[in-house]
């Protein structure tokens, strides 16, 4: 355990190297901020609203999955996962982007950012702490929705396909983390929470709707080759997520047309890793850029 004394020097057991002490202090500060952020998120209206909305929709989709085949009741895990895909692609980025966008900009607007920065805390610790806290809150929110849905499915339809459903939860969590990182980047750059939320909504619109339209228009206008269309498609983390989930459900990517066929043939078994890598990159890059900007720019 390290402590900082009044002279600003660190006391620590002799057998711990300075680097270890610095790392422990870094990790401890992040966890402290994360705990506070998590508690704040749990008591906030957005968390409650999104959790209720996501849970209701997830259970609704589970119930409706068999409606198309003329039956009533709950479908199995596999069909529900497929049914949930479009819902996740709409709701989860919205949840994560807006939550991330409000974090630093909100503190800045309330005047609490200055007070936190005046404490013995580095900017990196503050930013990462807030990210970790929000990430845990978001994943908890998703797990409540998925968990209740899974509980009902297990009760009414048995446990077949539970593995795919579990993987869907994992992929969704990674997608949420990437969108949260993008939201934090927006937040770092915004002076007001309202502006940050507005930009986040615009980015959401772009990722969910406009990028597909843009890709279609680009394909027609520039007569893009299939490999170029694939490359452009997977730049969008939502498309990468969609393809990954389809592969995970043991479905053929052929449903996505020539691009899907090309991806299956060209990348084979490495495709899920490539797609996962793209989404992870969408976590790491925005968060790293946000940290750099927050540190370099200084001020409040």
């Amino acid at each position: 355990m390290s402590t900082i004394n009044l002279n600003g020097t660190a006391h620590h057991p002799r057998n711990q190297s300075t680097a270890t002490v610095a790392y422990l202090s870094f990790a401890r500060s992040i966890m402290l901020i994360a705990r506070r952020e998590f508690r704040d998120a749990l008591s906030s209206k957005w968390f409650l609203l999104y959790t209720i909305a996501f849970t209701t929709l997830a259970i609704g989709v589970s119930f409706m999955s068999l409606a198309g085949s003329g039956e009533h009741g709950f479908a199995g895990f596999g069909k529900t996962a497929a049914g949930l895909l479009n819902l996740i692609m709409l709701v989860v980025p919205l949840m994560a982007l807006t939550a991330g966008a409000g974090t630093i900009a909100g503190e800045r607007e309330r005047g609490t950012l200055l007070y936190l920065l005046a404490q013995p805390l580095s900017r990196t610790e503050l930013l990462l702490g807030k990210y970790v806290g929000l990430a845990i809150a978001l994943i908890c929110s998703l797990c409540i929705g998925f968990g209740l849905s899974a509980g009902l499915l297990a009760w009414r339809a048995g446990g077949v396909g539970a593995g795919s459903f579990l993987m869907l939860v994992v992929f969704t969590s990674v997608l949420a983390l990437s969108m949260l990182a993008l939201g934090v980047l927006i937040s770092v750059q915004s002076r007001r929470a309202g502006v940050a939320t507005g930009i986040a909504l615009f980015v959401w619109l772009g990722l969910v709707f406009l990028s597909d339209l843009g890709l279609m228009a680009g394909t027609l206008l520039f007569k893009l080759r299939v490999q170029e269309v694939f490359a452009l498609a997977i730049i969008n983390p939502l498309q990468a997520f969609k393809m990954n989930v389809i592969i995970n459900l043991n479905a053929s990517l052929d449903v996505l047309g020539p691009v899907g066929m090309y991806a299956s043939q060209e990348y084979g078994a490495t495709l899920p890793w490539l797609l996962t890598g793209v989404i992870v990159l969408w976590c790491v890059l925005p968060l790293s850029i946000a940290t750099l900007i927050f540190r370099k720019r200084g001020g409040i």
Binding site: I4, G8, T9, R110, G111, T112, L114, Q119
Partner: peptide, 28 residues
């Protein structure tokens, strides 16, 4: 106390108790 604020801000701030014009903390 010899600690450069621009290089070791965290350590320097550990020596300071700061009182703002008005306390800005989460109202809840």
């Amino acid at each position: 106390n010899g600690i450069d604020v621009s290089k070791k801000g965290k350590h320097a701030r550990a020596m300071i108790g700061y009182v703002p014009q008005e306390l800005a903390f989460h109202d809840d």
